[in-house]
């Protein structure tokens, strides 16, 4: 997570909206994106760790395509300023 800022959620059925207190932007997330962001909010993870967590949580086979979609998800989270590289 980008430090010093918070996320606020609301989930309806299999979709969520999430508000970022820094950018002030609100994003629409599906189950996978939601599960990934929640996992990262909890603690910093490597891509492999994140793939494992999300695939378990959403009961999806962690094949290469899934790995690729998580990688893309991470880069869009990063672009939106929701997360940053953990370096400490």
């Amino acid at each position: 997570m980008t430090s010093g800022f918070e996320l606020l959620w609301h989930t309806w059925d299999d979709e969520s909206v999430v508000y970022h207190t820094g950018s002030g932007d609100t994003h629409l997330l599906d189950t996978i994106a939601m599960s990934a962001l929640m996992a990262l909010e909890n603690k910093a993870l490597t891509v492999a760790e994140l793939v494992e967590k999300v695939s378990k949580h959403c009961a999806i086979n962690p094949d290469p395509a899934f790995f690729e979609s998580i990688t893309q998800l991470i880069s869009s989270f990063n672009r939106l300023g929701l997360i940053e590289r953990y370096s400490h």
């Binding site: 606020l8 609301h10 309806w12 979709e15 969520s16 909206v17 629409l28």
Partner: peptide
Amino acid sequence: RSKAQTFIYAAENAFNYSALGL
């Protein structure tokens, strides 16, 4: 209609949603 999508549509088309922040 999906509530989350209704949220996003209403927010994007609101006059002052982003000015209100949290």
